[in-house]
Nucleic acid binder design. Structure first.
Lengths: 281, 281
DNA sequence: GTCAATATGAAATATTAATTCCAATCCGTA
DNA sequence: TACGGATTGGAATTAATATTTCATATTGAC
């Protein structure tokens, strides 16, 4: 290995892009693959990578040698180092934010704490959301005549956002909140051709549970957003989502719930447009 | 490998912590090392890891087997998968999410788009929040007798959350929303010893602007959350925050605004408790 | 079109690493 | 303290993986 072998990923990347034009076909093929799938290079074996890229293992080694490495193994080190660094920097950043927040370093720390909680919640839900459930919920809501939205207390802001967004999308909806105490009557109008989005987290607001039960008994299908399979909402729901929100200082984030709610709403709008086009065309 | 082998890192971690007490000495040693240095497990060889942890390679394999894996290699997969998922830096991951979302790959893409928008917004505000303004806003709100909360339409969910949180913290507040059309009268009660949190983004809801103007003319100090220095709210406010929310599919995120609102609220509660202690002590 | 240089594929080989095995040690119990 | 089972260390074995080699194909120059 001579002295100008790229040691870090960025240099390596630049080197590859630089020489791209002058590389033989198969080597170029591997080069492109490497830049597109750096993770595969980091973790794969020479054989598996070669197969994925559609070349022979020996080509992979030639590629490494052409870049000045003495073999595939040393090339791979660069790709691994990259993952290590990136990962630690991300982790470190969040951890630092949270650590600072938790040791209580003034008001800025409170802010950092909420940002960290929100980020964590988002990243959790992004991993854990079940695609099939999501599709099912969309289908169910898209064919509803009226969507009833049900949530109190901490979840109420989410409900009010859903109602706002559905309104913008011209989807008929009813936020179940009556200053005049007419919630029960409002719910009474719902039919099995409608649908409900119910949101509640522990400690579950009794009114939400009661209203959800009542509306479920009328045969109205329910999509629930809640925090565990033991949630009383889960038993009434056709589809339910488990959303784990991180908390800070006793206040739980609602960013993941909010993101899910926005996505549901817009996806329902989307689905209705598709259905509309199909009917017409 | 039986059916309850941990497949993801978090489950694995929980399993290890759970059994920790009952593990033999050397196995426990490896277990601790694994949780402390997950990256080393992901990248190292059985021999190198064993050496770093101060045990024999065979112990490492026994550890894996005790967890239900059929060998070190399958245990290592979990640690590698973790790196892959957390993968690229924050930015890169976001870019990937957004790219996928924008090429319109179905409903899941919509969800990913909203998660990406929320994450971006959070990371932006985390960088751009001005500490001095933040402290100033907290001071101003902490000494208010009543905090009036003013927001319509898209910002309304944030306002309702603030009202909820202030209530939980036993801070007197008034959400300016009257079904009976009595907002003007409600605002009329505010005095310079009170304070206002006003939230509005372009296109600014005329009612919010009008009410903010009215309450400002009564000499009530205003903290505004808005989206640019040209915002009509900025001119009325004692302190104002510029929050840039990313959007997806025409719907802007509110996660950054929400995080700021939560932080403001809790910080105000905190400051009041401090002040209370000082007065008593 | 022919030749030489270069590139490629496939299998053989060398290397490295994971796993197994067995003897030695430790630990709790009678 | 003697026994048995569990745990550990270390070497032997086996599996896997990278690398090399060599025959074949491709490309470009004359």
């Amino acid at each position: 290995m001579d002295e100008r072998v790229p040691r870090d990923f960025e240099t390596l990347r630049a080197t590859i892009l630089d020489r791209r034009a002058s590389l033989p076909k198969r080597i170029a093929q591997i080069a492109a693959y490497a830049l597109d799938n750096p993770d595969d290079i980091a973790f794969g074996t020479a054989a598996s990578i070669a197969a994925s890229a559609g070349v022979q293992p020996s080509t992979l080694i030639r590629f490494a040698q052409q870049l000045g490495f003495d073999g595939f193994t040393s090339l791979q080190q660069v790709f691994r180092e990259r993952l290590r660094e990136r990962n630690s920097s991300y982790d470190e950043r969040l951890a630092a934010l949270r650590a600072k927040a938790e040791e209580g370093a003034g008001h800025r720390a409170i802010f950092d704490g909420f940002v960290a909680a929100a980020s964590t919640s988002l990243s959790d839900i992004s991993r854990s959301l079940n695609d099939a459930h999501f599709e099912e919920a969309i289908a169910l809501l898209a064919k509803a005549e009226t969507i009833y939205v049900l949530a109190k207390r901490r979840s109420y802001p989410v409900a009010s956002y859903i109602a706002y967004a559905l309104g913008k999308l011209k989807i008929r909806n009813q936020l179940v909140e009556s200053a005049a105490g007419l919630n029960a009557e409002m719910i009474g109008f719902a039919t099995p051709r409608d649908a409900v989005i119910a949101i509640s987290f522990s400690p579950y607001a009794p009114a939400t549970i009661e209203e959800t039960r009542a509306i479920a008994e009328q045969g109205v299908p329910i999509v629930a957003i809640t925090d565990s399979s033991f949630s009383p909402l889960a038993q009434f729901a056709k589809v339910w989502f488990e959303v784990a929100e991180a908390d800070f200082g006793g206040f739980r984030s609602i960013s993941a719930t909010m993101a899910l709610a926005m996505a549901l709403t817009v996806a329902v709008g989307e689905k209705r447009r598709e259905a509309g086009r199909r009917r017409k065309g």
